[in-house]
């Protein structure tokens, strides 16, 4: 029986889905060793402790609640010091973080503080005796590297969506934990958090992603992409670098080698050529649809369903058809 640690990422006082995934992964790992405990840590402004039942539902036996008025926004140094102090105290076989913007910032700090290495962005993992074995997409997704990580605790980040959220239905013990570093003494301080609110479906969580490229011709025509996303109802909107470079779309929505990596059930590429750097961000999508007027566009080599045609003609018809299908007609 081994005890597992999970870091439960939150933003704006609410848990992110990857928090539940990290706890679920820790639950799986603990169960695989014969049913050890899962200890989840959540950090935030006073009130963040109210997330404990949701963490219990995903499999936490203990929720360490780190509340402080100055921790409303992410503090890399306070979070890493507090997680490291807890892991240092010993007894944990594994420590699970999300391979999100925050988790990928945090986990290597924690590992270094413990003098350990870590394994990043795993899509699968298993403890095999003294080592953790995991799968990590490398080389812009063109290679799957199987890594072996020695050392205890095994610190890993998990690719969003790699783990199904568990329905473990536990009622966790809540344990208040003081920050291991006075937030006022942190050198690195997040002074503002801007951008979209939490209500927006994030690219990483959306079952459907509709992305637009330069074929849309101008920023205003992204309305066609947004309308299709709205017709699906469970879709987020992505973009190519050609389009974010031109300032048509928020850089945070860029999909690809130097942008976000998504793996939705359905990816719809609208007016996108399918450059290798774009494919790096979406090639593991379950089903890929492409609409492009050039039948030789590289995206058609990958697309399960390609439509050769003018997107300005196809998109309104497709949007209406999806809306009807969703309405059950």
């Amino acid at each position: 029986m081994a005890t597992m640690f999970a870091f439960a990422e939150s933003r704006g006082g609410a848990l992110r889905k990857v928090a539940l995934e990290a706890v679920s992964a820790a639950r799986q790992a603990a169960d695989a060793t014969g049913g050890g405990e899962v200890h989840a840590m959540v950090v935030g402004a006073p009130g963040i402790g109210s997330t404990a039942p949701a963490l219990g539902q995903a499999g936490a036996d203990v929720v360490m609640v780190v509340e402080h008025a100055e921790l409303a926004r992410y503090s890399p140094e306070v979070c890493s010091a507090t997680a490291a102090a807890r892991l240092q105290a010993g007894g944990y076989r594994g420590a699970f973080f999300a391979a999100s913007a925050e988790g990928r910032d945090l986990a290597p700090r924690v590992a270094a503080a413990l003098g350990l290495s870590m394994a990043a962005d795993l899509t699968e993992f298993a403890f095999e005796g003294e080592v953790l074995v995991g799968q990590h997409p490398t080389h812009i997704g063109k290679i799957i590297t199987t890594v072996r990580l020695a050392g205890t605790p095994a610190i890993v980040t998990l690719r969003p969506g790699a783990v199904l959220v568990a329905e473990a239905g536990r009622t966790p013990v809540v344990e208040p934990v003081a920050p291991a570093l006075d937030p006022g003494a942190a050198r690195v301080v997040v002074t503002a958090l801007g951008g979209k609110g939490d209500a927006q479906l994030d690219l990483a969580d959306a079952p459907v992603v509709v992305s637009g490229g330069r074929g849309l011709r101008e920023a205003a025509n992204f309305a066609l992409v947004e309308a299709l996303a709205a017709a699906f109802g469970n879709a987020a909107v992505g973009a190519t670098r050609a389009v974010t470079d031109d300032g048509w779309r928020d850089p945070a929505t860029q999909i690809g080698q130097t942008g976000r990596i998504v793996s939705p059930d359905l990816y719809v590429a609208v007016g996108i050529s399918g450059a290798i750097q774009h494919l790096a961000g979406m090639r593991t999508s379950k089903t890929i649809v492409a609409i492009n007027k050039d039948k030789d566009a590289p995206i058609f080599k990958l697309a399960d369903y390609g439509i050769v045609g003018d997107l300005f003609e196809v998109m309104p018809v497709l949007t209406e058809a999806v809306r009807k299908a969703k309405a059950g007609g």
């Binding site: 063109k142 390609g306 050769v308 003018d310």
Partner: peptide, 17 residues
């Protein structure tokens, strides 16, 4: 290391609307 599983080759299902 390994190459990722191959996707089935792309398929064009038709033209236009």
């Amino acid at each position: 290391i390994a190459l990722p599983p191959d996707r089935p080759p792309g398929r064009i299902i038709g033209e236009g609307a």
